[in-house]
Amino acid sequence: MRAIIHAGTRGIHGLQYTQQANRYPGKGEVKVRLKAAGLNHRDLFLMNSPVDLEASFIPGSDGAGIVEAVGEGVTNVKIGAEVIINPCLGWENMNQVPVVPEILGGPTDGTLAEFVIIPQENAIEKPSYLSWEEAGVLSLSAMTAYRALFTKGNLQPGEHVLIPGIGGGVATYAAMMAAAIGAKVSVTSRREEKLEMARKMPINQAVDSRSDWKESMGSGSVDLILDSIGPATFQKYFDVIKPNGRIVMFGSSSGDDITIPTRAIFFPQITITGTSMASGQEYKDMVDFMEKHSIHPMVDSTYFLKDTALAYERMEKGEQLGNISILIREE
């Protein structure tokens, strides 16, 4: 099968477009012939810090396709079924969080290939309203956004949610999901082109990250903040968050170390919590939510499999708004 592998060199330069041996599903597994896949920042992280440069792997956590074969004991997935892939392996109950969730696409071979083999419970029926490109980019970002907003953030209709750093997949899904339940949505970015594109979304306001947030959003106006940035914006959250507000952290694009202003936490009784990905239970809830509200993933751009390195270059430069799609078969 044709596949993208990463080996030998850190970063995007370690990507190779190759022919790999075919594999067959084992007990409880299904083999999916992929139609489309999606890129995530996690892929770049793995490519830039591999444990063993000689150990090759197929990147990619998101994907959608058609079930080609099933292994022994598979009962709930049929050959020919159109499926999307839940990339989080072995986590079913949302309250039983694994120490380190296993994710498709490193070290387990991922979706940037013609075929992928996954446990049967990770193959979920593809919503018919989604195109292959949309279904192919859905999973990792959308499930992370769903858990952050609703399981951990407990967002309610009418509340005000702030999502700094609009542009990546999680942020765009979160903005659309929050708007769908009737929440007030504010987003920020340093890039004017991203702010202009964000203003075309069903949100309330898009603000320059470097501006005075108290002036644009109002002091003490925000109920929930989804933080994927960390130290670069963390101190500004206390200018706009309400007493009893919540901060849900799911990333740290500007670094790991933050200074916590303790009095700004305990006097107004702010809750800070972390999250990452989601359980199988929440994944199914997320898919149902997307279908109920007819939310379409925002596809930034589409590349063929052989051009995957170019797609990652776009992501590495931070140029995308939404998700980058990879078409597996060239038409």
Rank of each mutant, 00 (worst) to 15 (best):
V116E: 08
G169I: 00
T144C: 13
G165C: 06
V222C: 04
P87I: 02
G255F: 10
V32T: 05
N40H: 09
G230N: 08
D300I: 02
E330G: 06
G105K: 02
L310D: 15
E92V: 05
E72T: 11
N95K: 10
E330P: 06
W132M: 01
E193V: 00
F250G: 01
S294A: 14
E291I: 00
R210P: 03
T233I: 13
V116W: 07
I124P: 03
S252M: 14
G165Y: 11
A69N: 08
I241G: 02
G169S: 12
T259L: 09
G167W: 09
N154W: 04
A232I: 02
M47K: 05
M94L: 03
P59N: 08
V32E: 09
G136M: 03
S276D: 12
D300W: 13
D300K: 06
G26F: 06
S294K: 15
D223T: 03
T271L: 15
G105A: 04
T108W: 07
D285M: 14
G105L: 02
D208T: 02
G11E: 07
R199I: 00
L162C: 10
V170I: 15
S325G: 07
L310T: 14
N40A: 05
L130A: 03
R190L: 08
H6D: 07
R329N: 12
G230A: 07
Q269T: 12
D212Q: 05
V116G: 05
I4S: 04
D52Y: 08
K306G: 09
V99G: 04
P164Q: 11
E215M: 09
E215N: 13
Y129T: 00
I328A: 14
F238E: 01
T172G: 10
F250K: 00
K27V: 12
Q269K: 14
R190K: 12
I229R: 05
L44E: 08
